[in-house]
Design a protein around this nucleic acid. Sequence first.
DNA 1: TTCAAATACTATACAAAGGTAGTAATTAAA
DNA 2: TTTAATTACTACCTTTGTATAGTATTTGAA
Lengths: 131, 131
Amino acid sequence: MIINKTQIYAIRVLELLAQHKETPISAKTISQTLDIPYKYLTRVMTKLSLCQLIDSYRGKEGGFVIAKSPLEIQLQDIVDIFSNESPHQCICADGSMCGQNGKCILHDRWQNSKESIHQSFLNTTIGELST
Amino acid sequence: MIINKTQIYAIRVLELLAQHKETPISAKTISQTLDIPYKYLTRVMTKLSLCQLIDSYRGKEGGFVIAKSPLEIQLQDIVDIFSNESPHQCICADGSMCGQNGKCILHDRWQNSKESIHQSFLNTTIGELST
DNA sequence: TTCAAATACTATACAAAGGTAGTAATTAAA
DNA sequence: TTTAATTACTACCTTTGTATAGTATTTGAA
């Protein structure tokens, strides 16, 4: 698995918050704007808040605000939060294979592609997505 | 999802069969040799047989034999059999995003990586894996 | 102070991928 | 012909990712 739905949700949310740094945006608004299921979204938001990528404000007029400069948030930061794979796992997505008898049969072949994707996640920030 | 566990299983099986073209290899042997769950494996084998990548022989001394020249079987052939994604789906693995408001925010960025992986699957055959 | 709008928390449901179990059907060899 | 080894078929179980429901907590504004 290169990237899952939850991670895409999170990236899109951060992108939206990056465009409205001034006032908090509620989960309801985010849900409607980005067409993400409300209840699922709130759990994603809570996790982003715990990881301090965003600040949350309860109560009336509350919502979420991006906590850093968008240019300082790498896509990889967001992906990591919602990933259970170890960072250096092979693209084959099967932890049992790479490392036990050496490498899986695909390891070397896709290593370059994998590395290229990983570098993109590292090198691209939320701030750059809107440009 | 670039490639899942089942697809890796299938590729490894074909690679094994390619090394023993003469006599049928039983599912039991394959399961033990490649450390793939037996019952799950037999279902994969049946599907490979239906798709005519392998021939199956029932009864005593039965088993499976690769049905083509290993150099004629592209990895993509195998991947396709166990894939439910449409071939041109975006790497974001979320069909609802690419195509509705144009492209997803990641589409362009990972397009090159995706294409590179796809080309690898097309250009690499079972026969080349062992070399 | 009250109330409505909002996040936080917990439990549950659903769907897909991966895995297991049991039985039927087939077949070569003894 | 019998039997053991094998694939084929069908149903179910488990895990993980995604989604839903209900309630508690917080807080600004009327």
